[in-house]
Nucleic acid binder design. Sequence first.
DNA 1: ATGGTTGCCATGCAA
Length: 259
Amino acid sequence: MKLATWNINSLNVRLPQVIAYLQANPVDALCLQELKLSDDKFPVAALEEIGYHAVFTGQKTYNGVAILTRQPVKDVAKNIDGFEDTQQRVIAATLDTPAGELRVVSAYCPNGQSVGSDKYEYKLKWFAAFREGLQKELARYPRLAVLGDYNVAPDDRDVHDPVKWEGSVLVSEPERAAFRSLLDVGLHDAFRLFEQPPKSFSWWDYRQLGFRRNAGLRIDHILLSDTLKAVCSECVIEREIRKNEQPSDHAPVMATLEI
DNA sequence: ATGGTTGCCATGCAA
């Protein structure tokens, strides 16, 4: 079973690339972030044509998340239970597998803009609420996978120039602590379960030839519960996708589960 | 030190 996550920065613009990706990599579930469209504009039919179901929660211009699956899903939940928010950042759904129910979450964590800003404060509050939400998910679903754009580079290994980035948004210690607090509920960073190439990143700024210089950050992650960690055989960043014409600024991250 | 790019949508804002 293969799960992937990709911040596509507008589904309107990137739909052909999403379709091409799925045809080349027919993953069982693809989590998308930054749809940037309202639900009435979601391309249900185009995805159906290539054999994918979709659950989604979108809004005009900003945010928006989806889960695309080869099989129908159940128990769809939108947003974080008990956290009032107009921003559409979380969707969860359950897949039936031979091993039992698999819970998949697609998350677009806040960017935070700059340390100390209102958006940064919102980001930290959001993470605290997300942690509570994930704790509840884990209590109900031992097979839990949380995929998305976390907008946090957990470690200096995940930063192309740690000195330059020190203390900045996406890297600051309070954000890293917020990310670790998600792991504390019983989740594992799938990418770090395996030996990885040095300077592995998942996002490169459009500006300053970020991708060409590999001036990136690893901020897109797949978190797995203990039960799924035990059956995870691979986790890779699909860097080649960032070379597409008119690319998203993020590359997909994909994990294989032996279930 | 500042601005670079992209996507939204028509202007600055968010990332």
